[in-house]
Design a protein around this nucleic acid. Structure first.
Lengths: 199, 199, 199, 199
DNA sequence: GTCTAAGCGAGACGGTACGTCTGGTCTTTAC
DNA sequence: GTAAAGACCAGACGTACCGTCTCGCTTAGAC
């Protein structure tokens, strides 16, 4: 497993890698994204500073690596018979993710940072965990061969209102996700209506 | 000198205030939000550092003061006979604002920062320029006495997809704002049901 | 108060300057020259790191400023009737300086460093405390109008053996400074020829 | 090959040893003593870092091993009929060594370092190349059975002025080594006076 | 022909100083 | 009493080197 390529030299320490990711996760919760520091992560992880810089460039990169797996898992929604029920379940999972999960806090911070840091934006574009999770659901609802652009616009319609609600500081409890899901469901039914997928 | 209020001592320098706001605006464009610095702003403005700290607490506050007026102006949309046309015009103004305007860049950065900085979040909550602009339009479409919560949810439906599209790094040219406006228009027509405001 | 020149801005803090010089002196004794560190000096002095860098470039510069006054004082020798007695007194003062004084330890370290660091060499050349102290004595012995080059060579003859003895790690107690002084005295008597100065 | 002692395992690589000593010599000339680094030596020698640490403890040790043989050779002076000529030749060899030779530069740096690093001082005390070379000459001048302490003081008298001249940054060309030799010669003639040893 | 032992180049490890930068504060003089 | 200047303490930045620790490989004598 380790010894990532049969090359020379001491192999990378899995212990150090895990400690850094763990420390980053802890610090995000304890002090917040802005107050996180590569030095702080290294110290907390009991790891040399150079070891962090050797494998990651920015705290964003660390946080993404620390959260991606959790995020993927938290955003996976079981199939249901009723499309609207499935969309509702997804919106609720997404709400829970963005408002109550560690990984979700990391993603909120990263998406925020991406608004003024192109490097973070590129990082997120390279591994679109949220978009992927939505596309899984939407392919079940709209059909497996729906084209990418249609999926993306449907994603925006589905997620957008919730996303806006949370990112502009509203109380998640006051948003009626069931209504949102139903509206989208109707809209998607029309789209996939006549019969095939993109219509 | 104008001595703007009857206070003692040397009056606040309008020159310094303007220079700071101007410098903040320039620096946002030139180096980006993350690389902006209170020290940098002060130096660029030819102003003492203490003078900046005396009147503002954070770069977010400066940026907000520098951009709010421009933002309000850029997001005002002329009334139109057709509600959908009005919604479309608004979405286009919002797209232009967020993707091509200085003030919009400032707002993107601030909304991003608000995701991990409660102080910035509070700042934005205190002067909701974007929400206000949407509510002006929506009151014209849904009726002047629509309740605040309904307006907020309608705002999320209207703006949300566009907001998600832009904040997750998609190309604004690929989003069909007219379709978005039309979907919302239909939805709003149902909401305002019996048929007063939209006819 | 002090305000070293009519300039703008906060004046340099004499407190900080003294604390740095004091800390450097202490650290030299406690941990030695090699283990001295600008960071360590700043921390020990309770001073910001930038404050040290603002006024000094290297630890050598700090140490020189901290020791020069002490050195000048320790190497001043009272005039005596007998030239040989005066030379002996000087050699003993120099021995005490180089082997038992804080300031002397600093000079030993600096002269050592100068052998492989041209910057330190230039620093020492700019303020030749030891040479100056020898020239004061030698002008009394050889006559006030002795030319500089003669003084320098006499300095080498007088100091050289002692210098070599100490710098190659011999025990200062085993060197007969009186004999050295007498040899030099005889040699100088020949130099200053007809017989005025030494009688 | 020769397997230097009957030990097990792979024998020490003469190639690596030579490469390290060579690299140290080169680096001393190219970047100076202060900027020399064990890492830099290892890299330049194309040798693993551990290989250097296995056989040497400090850069001083490497430098000494790299220079001792050259130094001994450069400081050996042919016997001459005239003692003063021999002393002059020696002083000139020593001047050339300390000011123009690679090995001499190494010794200057090491003697300098020894002033604030006891480990280097001990190293030099263990193999006194310069002192040995002087004692060879002085035994020829003062007699083979001159006692060690007399030899050491004579060494200080002979070398001291030159040593001081160079170590305090004077121009070697301006020092009259012939005069120095003559003064010492006279002094030594008095010492060995009664007439036994030198004949 | 294994087997055992040590040396080899490479390079990651936990530390720590480097010199620079910014954050906020403090202390001057000038207006 | 504000403004501009600039020094103050604090501490993070990213880099470099420290000395140590694996790795896989090589090179020898011992069995």
């Amino acid at each position: 497993m380790e010894q990532q390529n049969g090359r020379l030299g001491r192999p990378r320490s899995e212990r150090a890698r895990a400690a850094v990711l763990h420390a980053a996760d802890d610090l995000l919760v304890e002090v917040g994204y802005a107050a996180m520091t590569l030095k702080g992560i290294a110290d907390r992880a009991g790891v040399g500073r150079q070891t962090v810089y050797r494998w990651w460039s920015t705290k964003a990169e660390i946080l993404l690596e620390a959260s991606a797996d959790d995020a993927r898992q938290e955003l996976a929604v079981e199939p249901a018979d009723d499309p609207v029920a499935e969309l509702t379940a997804y919106l609720e999972a997404l709400t829970a993710f963005l408002t109550r999960s560690h990984a979700g806090a990391a993603y909120r911070a990263l998406i925020g940072e991406a608004q003024h840091d192109p490097a973070v934006a590129a990082l997120l574009a390279g591994d679109d965990v949220i978009g992927d999770s939505a596309r899984v659901i939407l392919r079940r609802v709209l059909g497996v061969d729906t084209c990418r652009h249609t999926l993306d616009q449907a994603t925006a319609s589905l997620i957008g209102p919730l996303f806006f609600w949370l990112f502009t500081g509203h109380d998640p409890a006051l948003l009626d996700t069931a209504a949102l899901a139903e509206t989208c469901g109707r809209q998607f039914a029309v789209m996939s209506g006549g019969g095939e997928s993109t219509g």
